[in-house]
Design a protein around this nucleic acid. Sequence first.
DNA 1: AACCCGGGGGG
DNA 2: CCCCCAGGGTT
Length: 331
Amino acid sequence: MNPALRSDLLTWYRLHARDLPWRNTNDPYRIWLSEIILQQTRVDQGRPYYERFTERFPTLKDLAQAQDEEVMKLWEGLGYYSRARNLLKAARLVQQTHNGHFPNTAEGLEKLPGIGPYTSAAIASFAFGQAIGVVDGNVFRLLSRLFDIDACIDEGKNRPVFQALANELIDKEVPGISNQALMEIGATICTPRPKCQKCPLQTHCLARERGTVDLRPVRKKRNKVKEETIDYLILLDGSGQMAIQQRAAQGIWAELFEPLHSAEHQVQPKLDQWHIDHRLTHRILHIRFQLCRLKTEKKPTNKHIIWVGADQRRSLAFPVPVLKAFAHWDL
DNA sequence: AACCCGGGGGG
DNA sequence: CCCCCAGGGTT
């Protein structure tokens, strides 16, 4: 590995790294928390969640003792809710069976729920200084270009190729910083539409030399995304309570709470199916969302309906813009 | 290996 | 508006 490449990388990082709260700590708990929040999530979106979680649960012990509902509520709007469930599972597991100490190797960390190859390497290198490469989407893209790799990044059999390169690139003196630097370039410079003129590694970049930057990384074709529409009925009683129900245990937004809604699997909204009791305040809200496939679901039945006030801490399941639309549902 | 699981940003 | 992005778990 070219030593000048490593040196250029670290020099650039020390000058240009964003100041992020989880970079100012060595606490494995906070580093783990940040990594779970940042899975499939941009920094700007995840940061406020990190702030709220660390404020409410400053230590692993605090989180391990939390109620499931409160954690789900704090996760509301972030998506991929199984992350929150696994977060709590892992917190209790580490607290109870590891005496509150996270495993200090990637191999040990990967046994915890919600921690896979990327996250285990991230925690192991950031918190414990293990010299193992982090291979997330940013690093896949950066390595594909830097070494002009034509192996497909979303085929599992090619992962070892990228992992080996990431391992080689690590500066053994500062494994964590070195990994952070790679991801930081991927996130800010070597983006899908790269800013090569600003890149500290441009003189080392094989794809740039060969003019193949726009062909990297190589990726499979994506599945078409289906669109679904749900009509939500925002039903309020005289005291400002809203009717909600819990979703089914399987499928999207599993077990989260939501207002009453029309049957799913319909392309066009069918507003006339509602039989509205005009003694109650109501409004109908259309939500469009995208997903690949949606399992069939029973229609709402009255026996599952509960009424909650705006101050109660139920977990809802809406996309953030929709939540904002009736954050105060005593409209 | 294929599929499921949300939400947001940019052109 | 359409297209793009991305870890871990389950099947």
